[in-house]
């Protein structure tokens, strides 16, 4: 079986001689939900731009469902649906026309194109806006319009470059459900970039981390999370204490809100921590992780490289 996406030794040098990709290799399996993570300027959009023909590669190969974008470009393109980072539709055109026109570019007859456009505009909550010019939509709606446009020809591989940037929390959750449904029920392979790591943690099965044009990690989410050797917990105490207690085997400190922050290594169990706290008659009211585990790992990896 062909992989949905195979990237081998891909490099990109822009016209201004900036080396945005320094030889990256990636494989995304068919049916996967894949996250490409990395700080601003890491090369995420450049990578996805090359896959979707918006950016010329300098060297290396890219295959979409086995079709090389150099030799089988048309076949590769028919597999793809692309949601770019920046808005790229005609602001004066009507929402419905934008989606139907896109279907036409894939050779879908008008009748079918209209049915499919209606389906996806409804799913993305834009049906009421179908006759509005695109420029009158809110930022979050524009993003959803681009998703509807990318799906109208029902691609096998959906590329989403920061699809939830500027989308409110409630809507983001409903977009997550939508993307999950697409992946699980329609079998669409999804590649997404995001700066919300909890999004990647909630949705994706495999993750690659890219920084300064290089892949730092490329593995399953589960394996990646196991690499997080320690987690920091924040404990709310029933009464304030003046200084951080000495706990045997645990690092801890008081933060500026008067909460206790404790580092717990993977092999340590949390019961021991509570036993230690009990010994010193410190009562814990509630407890939470200081940040998502993926976030801790991400920060450590990206900083460690510099």
């Amino acid at each position: 079986m062909n992989h949905a996406l195979t990237i081998t030794n891909l490099t990109k040098v822009y016209d201004n001689e900036f080396e945005a990709l320094k030889g990256i290799s990636l494989v995304v399996k068919q049916g996967d939900f894949f996250a490409l993570l990395g700080p601003n300027g890491a090369g995420k959009s450049t990578t996805l731009g090359i896959v979707s023909s918006l950016v010329n590669k300098t060297s290396g190969t890219v295959k979409v469902f086995g079709y090389d974008i150099e030799t089988d470009l048309v076949k590769a393109k028919t597999q793809l649906g692309v949601v770019p980072q920046e808005f790229n539709f005609n602001q004066f055109e009507k929402v419905f026309d934008i989606v139907v026109t896109q279907a036409g570019y894939y050779g879908i007859p008008a009748v079918e194109a209209k049915i499919s456009a209606e389906k996806y505009l409804k799913k993305l909550g834009l049906w009421d806006k179908r006759d509005e010019p695109a420029r009158l939509l809110s930022g979050g709606m524009k993003r959803r319009l681009m998703i509807a446009r990318a799906l109208v020809h029902e691609p096998n591989l959906l590329i989403l470059d920061e699809p939830t940037a500027g989308v409110d929390i409630e809507l983001r959750r409903s977009m997550w459900d939508f993307m999950r449904e697409l992946n699980e029920q329609q079998g669409t392979t999804i590649i997404l970039t995001t700066h919300y790591l909890e999004e990647a943690e909630a949705l994706c099965r495999n993750i690659a981390i890219i920084d300064q044009g290089r892949i730092l990690a490329n593995t399953s989410k589960k394996e990646l999370l196991q690499k997080v050797s320690a987690e920091t917990f924040v404990l709310d105490l029933d009464k304030p204490i003046n200084s951080a207690p000495e706990l045997e085997g645990f690092e801890c400190r008081l933060n500026k809100d008067g909460c206790l922050e404790v580092g717990v290594a993977q092999e340590q169990d949390i019961n021991t921590l509570f036993t230690e706290l009990n010994k010193q008659s410190i009562n814990v009211m509630s407890m939470r992780a200081s940040s998502s585990r993926l976030e801790e790992l991400f920060i450590r990896m990206v900083e460690g490289e510099e």
């Binding site: 979707s52 770019p84 790229n88 005609n90 602001q91 570019y105 446009r149």
Partner: peptide, 18 residues
């Protein structure tokens, strides 16, 4: 040029239209 400026030319570039 309007398509280039608004980048909606990308709608055509990503699609398989020769």
């Amino acid at each position: 040029f309007g398509m280039k400026f608004q980048r909606s030319i990308e709608e055509l570039i990503v699609s398989p239209v020769p």
